[in-house]
Write a protein that binds this DNA or RNA. Sequence first.
DNA 1: CCTAATAGTTAGGTAACTTAATTATTTACA
DNA 2: TGTAAATAATTAAGTTACCTAACTATTAGG
Lengths: 149, 149
Amino acid sequence: MADIESATAQNLLKAFMQFRKTGWHEKKIGGYNPSEFKVLAAIQQGANEKNEEMKVSEISQRLQVTPPTVTQIINILEKDGLVERAVDPEDRRSVKIKLTQAGMEATARAKNRFTENFTGLIDYLGEEESEQLADLLDKVHHYFNEQSR
Amino acid sequence: MADIESATAQNLLKAFMQFRKTGWHEKKIGGYNPSEFKVLAAIQQGANEKNEEMKVSEISQRLQVTPPTVTQIINILEKDGLVERAVDPEDRRSVKIKLTQAGMEATARAKNRFTENFTGLIDYLGEEESEQLADLLDKVHHYFNEQSR
DNA sequence: CCTAATAGTTAGGTAACTTAATTATTTACA
DNA sequence: TGTAAATAATTAAGTTACCTAACTATTAGG
């Protein structure tokens, strides 16, 4: 059993705490809150992948947040004219979310801004270490998922 | 320049997002909110290291949050009888925070609970990969700190 | 000695969530 | 076929973990 007082444990814990605060998850991304940006990006990606509009439940699943959370963020984006709701004629309980023209432009801009930072990180770490990091974080996620079952 | 659409970028981004949600940062740690637990642990550690009580400003620095945040958490802990305030006679502007007996016991219990999980992770990853992960996260932190200057 | 700096607190706000309850609608089956 | 159960989204209200700005008390510096 590893010892929490060991240098390794201390280092890893400190690294975790630092990382939470760290700026990859900025205050504003191209003018939008991170949560808004994530929803915009999810809508865009979903539309890209399936060539179809995203339902609230799909966004919720993709971002791993509850449906009310998505509803609220969509409300803001709709008020800002970035997004439109349309009842799905196939299943009138569902609501399809679509980016407006302004929304597509805003998303592209924000994504660009985000991309600069993020690809900069990968260049800084190097391809190999970036992959390593992704793998290790996956393992951590896997460990805690097991744990909670 | 790395490409945001590359597999590496996608993987790393996904890993980051997953990690944020991941349960190392649990909802409750031995019955306390993470923020409360962190303050308790900081007080304990500070007292351990310097054999002296922590000032609000020191806790604030250590946890990288503003003094009002610390004040508020201390208020809760004080109400719960885990912590006591005492004006520093050397500098009557300062307030020294001390764990009560109940506070020491609660902190020990919570820390134990936390430790189980965390050392389990290190065992799961192995010593070497744990160090690697800590290093990589440090690099990420370093990169974003540069960026924001 | 008095102005400026420092330590902490108070007041008020925000972002990003959550759960529980409610409203439409659709599905299943008796 | 009619109704009960399930599903999709929303509304309402609450929580956590922060923050900034303004205030109070105390100490330090010229």
